[in-house]
Computed example of a mutant assay.
Amino acid sequence: MPVPLMKPLALARRLLPVGLTLLTCACDTSGFVEDSTEEASLTLDATQPHVVKRLRLQGKTRKDARAKFTEVVLNVNSSVKWYPKEGTRTDVLPWYRIRMVTEQDGLVHDEKAFVMEPSSHHDYLYTSAGLKLEALPDSLDTVFQLEFDRQGAPSEGTFDVTWKAYATLFTDAGAPEDIQFTVTEESPAP
C-alpha cells in the first residue's frame, strides 16, 4: 500500500519547528577581537642570515564578563626582494625561508621556503599559526617566533623584507568590548 504524500503546506508546518531548532543550534554565538602590529622591515645578508621576531599575544576578559577563549590565530603578511650588488656573483641563487614557531614547545606551524632569483620580488607571503584553546580560559598569554632566514655565503646581496602581523582571538560568547587583546613585537628571549 503506497504511503500518502503530505500536502506541501502541511509538510512545511511539520518541518518548520525542526528546522528552527536545528538553525538555533547551528548559529554561532561566538565573537572575536583583532589586533595587529605596525608594518616593519628588516634586512638579511650573508653576515646576518637569520632574524627572529618574537610576537606576544595577550588576552583577558573583563572581570564580570562570561566570555571564554576558544582559539587564537596569528597571520603574518610579508614580502621579500633580493638585491644582488652590481658586479657580484649571481650564479649562487640563495634560498629564503620564513616560518612561524610556538616559542614554548618549538612546534613549527607554518613554513615557506624557496630559491630567489636576481631582483625577484615575492609579495603576499602568508604565514599563519592557530591554537585551539581546550580549557576555554578567560586569559591568554602565548608567544610565537617569526623566523626569517636566508642562505649565507657564498650567496651575496641583501634581502629586504617587510612584514605585518594580524591576530584574532575567538570567544564562545561575550561582546568585543569585554575583552582586551593585543599582539606586540618583543625582543627575543635571551
Rank of each mutant, 00 (worst) to 15 (best):
K81C: 12
S128T: 08
L125K: 01
R54W: 08
F32R: 08
D123W: 09
L133Y: 06
K164P: 07
P4K: 00
F181Q: 01
F170N: 14
D138L: 02
E71W: 11
T88K: 09
D91N: 14
Q58L: 07
S36E: 13
D64G: 07
P94R: 00
D91E: 11
V80Y: 07
E39T: 11
T90S: 10
L125H: 01
E134Y: 07
A12E: 12
L23E: 09
S119Y: 13
F144T: 02
K81R: 15
A65H: 14
Q104I: 14
D178S: 07
C27T: 15
G174I: 03
L131P: 05
H122S: 04
K112W: 10
V33G: 06
D35E: 10
V18S: 01
A165C: 11
K63N: 07
K132S: 04
T70K: 01
I98S: 10
S155H: 09
A65Y: 11
M100A: 02
T158H: 03
K132Q: 12
D110Q: 05
P84C: 00
T21Y: 09
E86Y: 07
V92R: 02
A135F: 01
R14I: 15
D138C: 04
N77Y: 06
E134A: 11
S139D: 15
L131E: 12
Y166G: 09
L42T: 11
F148R: 09
P17W: 04
A173F: 07
S139N: 12
P94K: 00
L15G: 07
K85D: 15
A167V: 08
E177Y: 06
T171P: 12
W163D: 11
F148K: 08
L11T: 05
K132M: 04
K63R: 14
H122F: 11
F32N: 10
V183Y: 00
D35P: 07
D28N: 14
G59I: 08
D35R: 07
H121I: 01
G19H: 02
T43E: 13
P137W: 01
